[in-house]
Design a protein around this nucleic acid. Structure first.
Length: 296
DNA sequence: CACTTGACCTGTCCGC
DNA sequence: TGCGGACAGGTCAAGT
């Protein structure tokens, strides 16, 4: 899915589009994608006004005037796309190559929210891993997904000392697996963990306990910089990701290793390689990111 | 307990 | 062209 920068880009888009709009109806095509009881949906969703849009880790929180919030997790292939009117093609904005999708709803549309003014919010999700669910606003952070999350990797008050201390809970696994663990820090996924490890010159399969303190500091700084840059660029569009208006993000043009296997490293010109770490496709420079093991 | 591996789905791409 | 298998931005339950 969308990782933190993609979800944040969607949040910013929705923030300029949804607050103040009142929900007229919802059309659920795939029950798995929006499994709330119809009676609850009718009571707290239909007729509600959107009051705020928040984000925690890779999860979105659409706050409603009824004291409930619509939580959304896009997982791997989810999209939340707003259209003023049904049938808008999405190709008319002057950026014809920036849109991945045409008329909506389409084959991957799992639910459609219609507002009083006739505009729509489409929840598309090819693989059906994503979900939307209604929860009382004051209980959102107690939801299992949110309750487990560590601090935001981009939080201004996340210090290096805190980052290091949280990683210490995962000494005997790979640094890549530890960073992907959302309970350690929230928001980093498979693209940005590879980019951050490249920035810090750490081999992704290094045991956490074998990463030196200076390198850990570089990783902390690298992850935060990469996230900030990607938010500025509207995120990464590899396949499915689009923002709230259906447009792609451009971060991948600046990626140093992700999906660049076989291409030269910008630092040393060694060819980028791909391997499997923590069950995920992993991109790295075999020269800049050497595997080091501390023998005891 | 800490850690790893499948499962959840659909679609696409690659080798035979 | 068809078919099988691997793989895809994420989590979670069930294994060891």
């Amino acid at each position: 899915m969308p990782e933190l920068p993609e979800v944040e880009t969607i949040r910013l888009g929705l923030l300029s589009l949804l607050p103040g709009r009142r929900i007229r109806s919802v059309d659920i095509e795939t029950a798995k994608s929006f499994p709330n009881e119809p009676s609850l949906t009718k009571a707290v969703f239909i007729g509600a006004e959107v009051t705020a849009i928040d984000r925690r880790g890779k999860g979105l929180i659409i706050e409603l005037s009824t004291g409930y919030s619509l939580l959304v997790h896009l997982k791997m292939t989810g999209q939340l796309v707003f259209r003023q009117k049904q049938g808008d093609g999405g190709f008319g904005g002057g950026h014809p190559n920036d849109s991945l999708i045409g008329r909506l709803p389409d084959r991957s549309t799992r639910a459609t929210v219609t507002f009083e003014d006739g505009s729509h919010l489409f929840f598309n999700d090819q693989r059906k891993f994503g979900w939307m669910k209604l929860v009382q606003t004051d209980e959102v952070l107690g939801e299992p997904f949110f309750a487990r999350l560590g601090p935001e990797i981009i939080a201004p008050d996340l210090t290096f000392a805190s980052f290091e201390a949280r990683l210490a809970r995962r000494q005997r696994t790979t640094i890549k697996a530890a960073i992907l663990d959302q309970s350690v820090v929230a928001g980093v996924g498979n693209i940005y963990v590879d980019e951050g490890l490249y920035a810090a010159k750490i081999h992704p399969a290094t045991q956490v306990q074998d990463v030196s303190r200076p390198k850990l500091k570089l990783l902390y700084e690298g992850l935060r910089e990469v996230m900030a840059l990607s938010i500025r660029l509207g995120g990464s569009s590899d396949k499915n990701y689009v923002d709230a208006e259906g447009n792609k993000g451009s971060y991948l043009k600046f990626a140093k290793v992700f999906r660049r296997e076989g291409l030269p490293c910008e630092r040393c010109h060694t060819l980028i390689e791909k391997m499997r770490v923590a069950g995920r496709g992993t991109h790295y420079c075999p020269h800049c990111q050497k595997l080091k093991r501390v023998l005891k």
